[in-house]
Design a protein around this nucleic acid. Structure first.
Lengths: 157, 157
DNA sequence: TAATTACCTAGTATTTTACTAAGTTATAAA
DNA sequence: TTTATAACTTAGTAAAATACTAGGTAATTA
């Protein structure tokens, strides 16, 4: 699993889309202005998101982007994997000397951990985030410790 | 939260240390050879790990590295944050116009999600990984679906 | 004293990130 | 039918991160 600022941009943009795409498509220009991401970088990200059918583009005036499917059906893992493309980590599949060496063990331990992180993010949908954003007060007004995702946290606790 | 290949290297190296550091210190040369990471890059990573007291170095012949504290007391989050240093994400703290804009909401949603990932990785210790590695058969010999971390997965399910 | 290993600093090739620039295609509205 | 809009595409690039090489110094053991 890989989680970089690129993935963050993608999730942020998708969140913006989910929040504003209720009544009509959202343009990349809007997202660019809202989130402070360059238009061209967004286009690059959305090319990847479109390839994975996570968004659907509508051309022409009044056009823009829609979510490719319901917000419940889009996980955070989906989004991150679309732009950061999932790298299958080096698994020494019999190629290198393995029995007795620690290398393979640590690799497989990491792979398993990586899979756990993936499954964790797979469980959180865009709709989960949006729902809690709508329930809560406006983000900037709330206290730092007062997480609106605390109930999601319950899953991991 | 940030999760890059750099963090992966760090976790891998710490795992190696935990697995082999039972009877005496482990040299970076050993880890370098075991895990296929350059010695100098390991030194760079271990400088960061040492700064956070996650490892303890012993100089001279027969020297090497020990874990800085018990493997139960070292979380995966600890390790990743040591080398990838936690970036506090842009939170528009009253600076920009916030009420009414979506920007702040999506930012705080991301921040909350990021915190959830952190808390998830905070719950998994080095000892958890090592314990399961010792119980299981050698990594390369087991089937792909047969995760030795499935019980850890139970926390998130 | 010599070998070993941590520890430190500087430089660098490669890759990734995030962007600018300059287009083309499809579509809605004029 | 023209024009404006906005998706879509490609190429290039500055800056940062990644992972490494090289060449040291300092502490400790044999």
């Amino acid at each position: 699993m890989r989680l970089s600022t690129k993935g963050r941009y993608a999730v942020t943009a998708m969140l913006d889309l989910a929040l504003n795409g209720q009544d009509g498509p959202v343009t990349l220009s809007d997202i660019s202005e809202n989130q402070g991401i360059s238009l061209s970088y967004l286009e690059q990200l959305f090319a990847a998101l479109r390839a994975k059918k996570l968004v659907r583009g509508v051309r022409g005036p009044g056009g823009g982007y829609f979510l490719g499917r319901e917000a419940d059906e889009i996980s955070i893992a989906n989004i991150i994997c679309a732009v950061d493309e999932w790298v299958e980590f080096t698994r020494c599949q019999g190629k290198e000397d393995c029995r007795g060496g620690q290398r393979c063990l640590t690799h497989s331990l990491w792979d398993d951990l990586s899979r756990q992180i993936y499954e964790f993010l797979e469980e959180i949908s865009l709709a989960d985030l949006v729902r809690r954003g709508q329930e809560a007060d406006h983000g900037c007004l709330k206290e730092k410790g007062d997480s609106i995702l605390d109930d999601i946290a319950g899953r991991a606790a």
